[in-house]
Amino acid sequence: MRTLLAGTALAAITATAATAEDTHRAECFAPAPGTSTISYDAKDGPYKIAFVNGFAGNDWRIQAIQSAKAWAARADNAAKIDEFTVVSVGNDSAAQIAAIDNFIAAGYDAITFIAVNPTAFEPVIRRADRAGTILVPFDNVLDTDKVVQINESQMALGALKAQTVMDELGGEASKILMVNGLPGNATDRDRRLGMMSVLENVEGLEIVEVVGNWDTGTSQKVVADALATHGQFDAVVSQHGSAGSINAMQAAGHPIVPMGVDGENGVRILMDELDIPGVSASQAPAMSAVALEAAVALLEGHALPQTVYLPIPQVAAADLAPGVNYFPDLPKSFNTGTGFEDCFAPFTPEELLGQSPEDS
């Protein structure tokens, strides 16, 4: 059961603001503004831990799985783990909840996951709490304040991309293309809200939105359709799958315009080769490993912020450099967000690419 830091559960969640002085390794687990602090009774290891992924159909999710496995394979971490299991359940919230329940019933100590549906987990949280299983969602987090969650600020990520392109345009634009992610996810929702927080204040701006599903192929198709229907745009902001957006614009002969794009290796290669102004900023798949790091810290009895905001990996177009922040010899699908230095040494490409993306 949770060890509360101030009075009742309600008080701990709503009234106890987390500060760097209150929490374990604040240089890694930085508290989001206004968040609370959560801790549990310490439990002896080694631990049984599962990662229950949802959708596994894009390169980001594959690298998140590889990052989790690479973390578990490092000697210091492996010594603390009795069993580590990875499963992917697709875009079925019921299947994900069933998988988590199965791991709870099997006596797993902690479960990390990317939620298929951010609103469906209150009963699971209660069941995990009764069983003494710690839940640590990340990336697509839950609409709850009862568990520790690992993320970057999705609104800040969206706002960063939108603000960068508007700065490139001198604050004025008539038409911008917004390539959104997978509908129904909190991540997609919050990134869009971040972009809109900037763009809705631009006078006279037409915003054309398409659904790219965070996928390169899907993004290429929907951007091509948008260009055929709406003509030219002053800028593009893309959540993920941005190589598809760039490819569609090149195929249509669209002029180079400012872009806010993701951090895939191929995206940065294209950005540098084509001299595209803007920013490459990513939701780093290595946060799957930070979630595991958090799960072990909680099992060891350390206090963590209820919401952890990791720094956003980003590079301005003008600062792109081969071998430094992108890698011409690696697959274009490789994501450059390979780790968070304040948490642990970033993974090498060899560490990640040596791990299978399959269930284990």
Rank of each mutant, 00 (worst) to 15 (best):
residue 119 T to Y: 05
residue 121 F to N: 01
residue 135 L to I: 12
residue 108 Y to I: 03
residue 54 G to Y: 09
residue 121 F to G: 01
residue 93 S to K: 09
residue 73 A to K: 12
residue 49 I to G: 01
residue 60 W to G: 05
residue 75 A to E: 14
residue 117 N to G: 02
residue 102 N to D: 15
residue 93 S to D: 07
residue 55 F to M: 11
residue 100 I to G: 03
residue 58 N to T: 09
residue 86 V to Y: 00
residue 114 I to W: 03
residue 97 I to K: 05
residue 86 V to M: 02
residue 84 F to E: 08
residue 121 F to P: 08
residue 132 G to D: 14
residue 135 L to W: 10
residue 45 G to H: 08
residue 125 I to V: 11
residue 112 T to S: 15
residue 43 K to H: 10
residue 68 A to Y: 04
residue 105 A to P: 06
residue 42 A to V: 09
residue 43 K to M: 05
residue 81 I to Y: 00
residue 66 Q to V: 03
residue 45 G to E: 01
residue 73 A to P: 06
residue 136 V to I: 15
residue 124 V to Q: 12
residue 66 Q to D: 09
residue 122 E to C: 01
residue 63 Q to T: 13
residue 65 I to F: 07
residue 53 N to R: 10
residue 54 G to E: 01
residue 121 F to W: 06
residue 107 G to I: 10
residue 82 D to T: 11
residue 74 R to I: 02
residue 106 A to P: 00
residue 73 A to W: 05
residue 60 W to M: 08
residue 99 A to L: 04
residue 105 A to M: 07
residue 112 T to F: 04
residue 106 A to H: 09
residue 100 I to C: 08
residue 105 A to L: 08
residue 62 I to W: 10
residue 81 I to Q: 05
residue 114 I to P: 05
residue 130 R to Q: 15
residue 99 A to C: 06
residue 64 A to R: 11
residue 82 D to R: 14
residue 119 T to A: 13
residue 112 T to Q: 06
residue 115 A to E: 05
residue 131 A to W: 04
residue 76 D to R: 13
residue 118 P to Y: 11
residue 73 A to T: 04
residue 43 K to P: 04
residue 69 K to L: 07
residue 71 W to K: 09
residue 87 V to F: 02
residue 53 N to C: 09
residue 127 R to Y: 04
residue 57 G to R: 01
residue 45 G to F: 03
residue 57 G to Y: 02
residue 86 V to E: 04
residue 91 N to V: 07
residue 79 A to D: 14
residue 96 Q to T: 03
residue 61 R to M: 12
residue 127 R to F: 02
residue 66 Q to M: 13
residue 97 I to P: 00
residue 93 S to F: 03
residue 127 R to E: 14
residue 104 I to K: 04
residue 102 N to K: 11
residue 128 A to D: 03
residue 124 V to P: 03
residue 63 Q to A: 08
residue 139 D to S: 11
residue 67 S to K: 10
residue 134 I to C: 00
residue 76 D to T: 14
residue 66 Q to L: 07
residue 62 I to T: 14
residue 68 A to S: 15
residue 41 D to C: 07
residue 91 N to H: 01
residue 112 T to L: 12
residue 102 N to F: 01
residue 111 I to E: 00
residue 132 G to A: 10
residue 88 S to P: 02
residue 108 Y to A: 02
residue 86 V to I: 13
residue 80 K to W: 03
residue 102 N to I: 01
residue 62 I to K: 12
residue 41 D to V: 13
residue 127 R to G: 12
residue 49 I to L: 08
residue 49 I to S: 02
residue 90 G to R: 09
residue 112 T to V: 11
residue 68 A to V: 05
residue 71 W to T: 07
residue 129 D to S: 13
residue 91 N to P: 14
residue 126 R to W: 01
residue 94 A to N: 12
residue 59 D to H: 12
residue 136 V to Y: 00
residue 97 I to D: 01
residue 117 N to D: 15
residue 103 F to C: 03
residue 101 D to I: 00
residue 42 A to N: 11
residue 100 I to W: 03
residue 97 I to Q: 10
